[in-house]
């Protein structure tokens, strides 16, 4: 080849074609897809917790995207929930789908571990509640006080994980992160998932209609 300009223009055009198919078209399709009616936007506190999730890189070990049981049965059988649909992420900016499962999927962690006490203690030191966990502890999200004052959220960390004297108190950051985790509850039905044929289970479909107004 002898023409530098032709190479560069050709390369750019091919990339533009790829941009059309991999950026523009998916955006058009997915932004038009129905948002599940039961999906709630994040509260201000949850959004703040989400920023902490980003800042501390939770996404490098935790995914938020259960796969279809027909494709990867383990995801649902582990209790990670139904397969996710684009609409589930309507309020997610940026997305936090994740690509690693060094830790479990968190798409439904709020439903699986609904106790904020558990969430806080697990953040303070995961090994206090799960033996052998390799998740880092996040002591910097907590304060060590001699005597908690009114309104402090005390985390009763058992020995040997807690301090010898005084109390561990959750900061606003820790509470926000825990509230975000509790908000990760996508146990509502997803309207865009394929339905089973009506005659296969008429009773089930009927009750589904009642439930999803």
């Amino acid at each position: 080849m002898k023409r530098a300009l032709a190479i560069m223009v050709g390369a750019a055009l091919i990339l533009l074609l790829a941009t059309l198919t991999l950026v523009a078209m998916p955006y058009l399709q997915m932004s038009a897809e129905q948002v599940p009616p039961d999906l709630k936007p994040y509260t201000e506190q949850q959004q703040r917790g989400r920023q902490l999730y980003i800042a501390n890189g939770c996404v490098y070990c935790h995914s938020q995207q259960p796969r279809d049981p027909g494709f990867a049965p383990g995801d649902k059988e582990r209790g990670w929930g139904r397969p996710s649909v684009p609409g589930d992420y309507a309020y997610d900016q940026p997305h936090l789908l994740g690509t690693m499962r060094t830790g479990p999927d968190l798409f439904n962690i709020g439903a699986r571990q609904p106790s904020i006490d558990w969430q806080l203690m697990h953040l303070y030191n995961p090994r206090a509640v799960i033996k052998g966990s390799i998740m880092p502890s996040y002591p910097f999200l907590f304060r060590h006080v001699d005597e908690p004052v009114e309104g402090d959220k005390v985390v009763n960390v058992p020995p040997p994980y807690g301090p010898e004297s005084g109390k561990i108190v959750a900061t606003d950051d820790a509470l926000a992160l825990a509230e975000y985790l509790l908000a990760l509850d996508h146990t509502y039905p997803a309207p865009t998932l394929p339905k089973v044929p009506a005659k296969a289970s008429p009773k089930s479909d009927e009750s589904k209609e009642q439930r999803a107004p």
């Binding site: 279809d68 027909g70 649902k76 139904r82 397969p83 998932l193 394929p194 089973v196 044929p197």
Partner: peptide, 17 residues
């Protein structure tokens, strides 16, 4: 719609979680 490799199994009776 719904995502990659979605099958109707997802909403089979008793499995909608």
């Amino acid at each position: 719609l719904g995502g990659d490799s979605r099958t109707a199994v997802a909403m089979a009776p008793g499995e909608s979680g």
